[in-house]
Design a protein around this nucleic acid. Structure first.
Lengths: 337, 337
DNA sequence: TTATGCTATGTAAGCGCTTACATCAAACTA
DNA sequence: TAGTTTGATGTAAGCGCTTACATAGCATAA
């Protein structure tokens, strides 16, 4: 099966049909330069009659713009992605940009060549730890438009970033557990070190403890990895040591789910024997048994804003360097209320 | 912020650095034609030293190939998308293809110009009802590579398609409800008419009834729309009429969730007062209360295969015209066992 | 009238690659 | 030995657009 070359319509055919030059056709299509209404009408008619579609590669080559943005993620492995992708896709399309998506392989093992970059897009949304810092810096140094999503800029580089109030959300959650629920021994099921959301949430946890003069206990810190299975394994092992935590703060809902499974298997009642809370408020959270108390993160909104920022950077407009979206405590039964 | 033009390196710089012609560099990059090991080594060294990345637009223009495939969906509005996107992205990348994603707006209101097509991709995965049949036929007629996902070919056009055994899965589910559970009055909460999965599932439902000589009762058919909210509304209204169904077969899990919510609000116990089953086995299904009996659809696998087929079509290899992946009954408590 | 500024349009030079074709040396064949 | 094949490489012509620059027509100013 082959595309029929002879029938391929180019700007030349359109120009001939409309009785104008290719430059005028180009001006009409791009709404650039001055064109009389009369000429524009003829061009539109020709485009319609011939069913002409401008060749994206030729446009890109001539204009040195691809009209495409890229989304780089580490791995499409969580429910988290649906609202994020939705936000990005809708906003990109509304901005007249094509959207290229690629993952860098998961497992934090991204290595060159990277699938998306200055050679095939006008700018990149870099999600979390999908790209090593050195590549980020290389792209930024050559002036390539970049917006970070759920990750902050390397020091001294001022790459715009959009994320949620991770530290503040975690702080408020832990604060709530201490003040309203009276817990003192709060375990943290932390996310991957490489993932910045994880670091901020841990910091919020520590700050809340400090604010109530509760000493930080490293024995209450465990690795959940933003991952149901890993959390399950970690918590299962942990339970064998008869820990005396009153509540687990899982750094995301996925790991909370894994933890809950481990707790139930160990015969512990939630929240009577041990309470648990999460972070993100993925759809599933409300359906768990018991429903999960968590911190709602405006994932889709963050994604939309990231694209808007990126488009501005591409157009050389100024943008906020840091956009932090507020989170919201969602109290359900798993925390013991 | 601007890309520094002077520092942009092209194939010419690489050729000079390596002491060969641009043609040789091109041959090395594309592994086409004959190149001595010696020359290849020099070229690779030059590419490395200069950090050269071939310009995608220029390649596309010269070769008349974009090395990109497109995924067209109606709307990214369901958990369904995560495994599907994952399958498509991973397979596309493994095939050396870039992935462009666009939605056509949802609400079944796709209209030209379509964001993806012969001008910017080498081929398209068309999901469900994201594209009107006439555009599908236009693309197919000009020989543009197309693979349909969760949709079958328009009659007489033989566009390859990949989907799951919708009819068979529904038939087996309804058969199970009749034979194993003894139900006779089985309501169907059907999907959107425009969505082919919905049509096949309904057909399977009808065949199972017929096989057990249970008359088809139009009063037991309701519109769930593959959509939690719509299903909730429909079922709420339906309950006001005191229907005497013993079980609801929701055409997908999302609508099953909406239906369950409506049933619970009406004070009905599941499955004692009325049972319910779904289709797809999204992650949430296992966590519902009670856990949802459903039909497991291999969504990620279907996506992978669709991309593999598309790549074959692009390379003018022959492919299966119809790929039907088997589904599996997942029995949980919501059906009354 | 002639000069001056605008607007509308055309001409043509690339953008950075791929690839058909030409070329030439080395390795065969008879 | 001369003729033929084969492998390795280079030359250069586009691919289908955009856009700097040139030009022409017309209104307005001097």
């Amino acid at each position: 099966m082959q595309l029929d070359d002879s029938s391929r319509i180019t700007i030349v055919e359109v120009a001939e049909y409309a009785g104008v030059s290719t430059a005028t056709v180009s001006r009409v299509i791009n709404k650039s330069g001055q064109v009389s209404t009369e000429a524009a009408t003829k061009v539109y008619a020709a485009i319609d009659a011939l069913n002409y579609k401008p060749n994206a590669a030729a446009r890109g080559l001539a204009s040195r713009r691809t009209n495409a943005i890229g989304l780089l993620v580490d791995e499409i492995n969580s429910e988290f992605f649906q609202p994020m992708l939705r936000g990005i896709e809708v906003t990109a399309r509304a901005s007249g940009m094509s959207l290229l998506i690629s993952s860098t392989g998961g497992m934090n093992k991204a290595s060159p060549p990277y699938p998306l970059g200055e050679n095939n897009t006008d700018g990149l949304i870099v999600f979390a730890d999908s790209l090593p810092q050195e590549e980020l810096i290389r792209l930024h140094k050559i002036g390539f438009p970049l917006v970070l999503l759920h990750r902050s800029s390397p020091p001294n580089f001022n790459i715009p970033c959009v994320t949620v109030e991770n530290k503040e959300g975690a702080r408020r959650m832990v604060n709530y557990l201490i003040k309203e629920r009276g817990y003192r021994r709060i375990a943290l099921l932390e996310g991957p070190d490489s993932h910045e959301d994880a670091q901020w949430r841990k910091l919020g946890y520590q700050e809340a403890l400090a604010a109530h003069a509760i000493p930080f206990d490293p024995n209450l810190i465990f690795r959940g990895g933003f991952n149901e299975r890993q959390a399950y394994t970690t918590v299962s092992h942990w339970l064998e040591q008869k820990p005396n935590a009153e509540v687990i703060f899982a750094a995301d809902d996925d790991s909370a789910i894994g933890a809950m499974m481990a707790l139930k298997e160990a015969g512990l009642r939630i929240p009577e024997d041990i309470a648990i809370v999460g972070f993100d408020d993925i759809r599933l959270a409300a359906y768990l048994d018991p429903p999960l108390t968590t911190v709602r993160a405006p994932i889709e909104q963050a994604a939309r804003i990231a694209v808007e920022q990126l488009v501005k950077v591409i157009h050389s407009e100024t943008v906020e360097l840091i956009t932090l979206l507020p989170t919201e405590l969602v109290i359900r039964r798993s925390c013991g209320c």
